[in-house]
Write a protein that binds this DNA or RNA. Structure first.
Lengths: 346, 346
DNA sequence: ATACAAGTCGGAAGCGTTTCCGGAAGTCTT
DNA sequence: AAGACTTCCGGAAACGCTTCCGACTTGTAT
């Protein structure tokens, strides 16, 4: 005798166990107002019928769904950087009894906010409590999300521009601190001719470049920067930059690549020309991606703790949900110099 | 005048627009039984109030939630292989108007099925319609999921053992075909002394090894296999295997690594000893991971189309949901020989 | 004028839960 | 024995939506 559409409901359990609806519900939710005997009888019936409560129906009553949505913007594939952020989100979500929806968003940076076509899921009110925005984002999208009045936390370093945006919760890593430490480390190893290779159209690369220039300036040294000539991929850019580096007079003793990919391109091109790292020239990267340990010798770089970024996003989002009125949080996580084998002592 | 807890409901819209509940609902769901004038009035009210229907309440009525759950088993981090599968799932889901929940499961292969502690989300009936199982899986988990009576599709190549399992929907890539093509390609380039480096405790590595042996056997050649001596990581294993390869008398002219990671380890160790690939020895991998193109020269390997695996999982799951009684599907996707630069012509 | 169909629309019932109110029975106090 | 608490429990109401039934209006045919 089950209610029409298949699976047993709480009513079936109540009837079978000869108790009221409320009693079954109390048993399910661990309420203490049920005697041991009755509880056992109900539990037995539940097992007998294979009953499992319907999560959707349950959620109608709560004001929250205990689900958050991870949105990856403008990425063709989930690269390992963002994959680790997602992993951090999931880790933290599990501890906090939350679930994670995954969605991808693609849009143009020029589209007006209300003309952006959002992934269908963002139209579903009540399905999730808040958003975590990762991937590459532009102000128009953030603005659109703000209009939705859904609590959200954004990964800050990949936001291209903050022009005209109201404040919001965000988590970033400290690119400046990491690059400052890195360049100082190079100085401490005796390097005085240090070049930077980077494409400063990326906001995070600009931050790193700025840090590099400042440290050199403080040390009374001359910066030398090489930027992306066109639409080369990052590895190709590194390879291309190699000859530019070697053309310099005098030749730099160390090269700061804007990230590990560029460093890898440089390394490859250097090796092809028979120039050994670090014997002939030192090389450092940023991010500590997989490729850093795959290089030979392994790359000295700056570690970005992606998992922690994800975890922090999740924690802040949950706080925001519990305290809608709290001041906006902008958490900045430290980065970590990882000394491996690509810097020589001069 | 909104219903108590904040956001406007369909009742607020009805009152404001001076129509009945049913009319608002019909407008929302595009039913044709509403006159143009009324429809406009209701739509205007909806916009005015900023009303958006509650997805949870809506879902109670449907028998399905249009959400599927992607479960990643026993993986510490989302590596790029599985990240791409997830991406494929998401791509396909978007087309099919489905949403994707992300969950991680960790368990021991020895635990009895009903003692496995499942991620909380799998207890939530009605929240999602079906599962996609990826990551490394063992029969106990599959068995447990089967008991849950939730439709699911599994990624087949990483299932360690099928012992005692009833059949189920699965998607795999054809490791045999790919490795056969690869070894035949080596033969066509004149290689006759071909070694295999692999850890055959992995089921997918066993498949590749088997394919390798069969092709050599057909060609009347002697296989030479080197297996993982202990608990080395795959890259370390490749490095370790290098000296074993070089010890062989006569020395192989080509090495088939069980995957790109092992190939990379081999390549590194070879290069350190001044042995050039492919001039002195040829080397091939499997999977076509990122590292394949990062090597120098880029690695000749076999491409596994992870995105397509994800898409196929999604499609089959949806078919299963629509046709619960259909016969079990075991889809096998082809793999693709990718010739790059690590094989010489003898 | 009557009958009938088509086009609209209101609102009750229902989806599967939780929550709350109130009642019954038992226990303790005086 | 009466009253006051406790403990336990049943079921109505509510959550926000969809669906369905019936009713009203209008137009057309008879």
């Amino acid at each position: 005798m089950r209610s029409s559409h298949g699976r047993p409901t709480i009513r079936d359990v109540a009837r079978e166990a000869q108790v009221g609806l409320g009693t079954v519900s109390r048993v399910l939710n661990g309420g203490k107002e049920v005697s041991g005997a009755t509880r056992e009888r109900v539990l037995a019936t539940i097992r007998g019928l294979g009953f499992r409560p319907n999560a959707q129906a349950r959620r109608i009553h709560r004001q929250y769904s205990e689900i958050i949505c991870f949105v990856l913007s403008n990425r063709d594939f989930l690269n390992s950087f963002h994959a680790r952020i997602l992993q951090g989100v999931e880790d933290c979500a599990r501890l906090l009894k939350q679930h994670v929806l995954f969605a991808a968003a693609n849009y143009e940076s020029k589209t007006a906010p209300h003309h952006i076509i959002l992934p269908a899921i963002l139209g579903e009110r009540g399905l999730f409590d808040g958003l975590i925005l990762a991937g590459t984002n532009y102000p128009n999208f953030i603005h659109r999300i703000q209009n939705l009045k859904i609590p959200f936390v954004a990964f800050g370093n990949n936001i291209v521009d903050f022009k005209g945006l109201k404040r919001f919760d965000q988590v970033s890593y400290d690119g400046t601190q990491g690059e400052v430490e890195m360049v100082r480390y190079l100085l401490s190893r005796g390097h005085r001719l240090i070049a930077f290779v980077g494409d400063t159209t990326y906001p995070w690369a600009r931050v790193r470049h700025e840090a590099y220039r400042n440290v050199l300036w403080e040390a009374g040294l001359e910066p030398a920067s090489i930027t992306n000539p066109g639409s080369l991929s990052l590895v190709e850019f590194g390879e291309w930059a190699c000859s530019r580096i070697l053309d310099c007079q005098p030749r730099p003793t160390a090269v700061v690549a804007m990230n590990d990919e560029v460093a890898h391109g440089l390394w490859r091109a250097l090796r092809r020309r028979g120039i050994q790292v670090p014997r002939d020239i030192s090389l450092v990267g940023f991010d500590d991606r997989d490729v850093a340990t795959l290089m030979d010798p392994p790359l000295t770089t700056v570690r970005v703790k992606q998992m922690e970024i994800g975890q922090a996003c999740m924690r802040i989002l949950l706080e925001r949900l519990h305290h809608p009125e709290m001041a906006f949080v902008e958490q900045v996580l430290s980065t970590e110099l990882v000394v491996r084998g690509t810097v020589s002592q001069l």
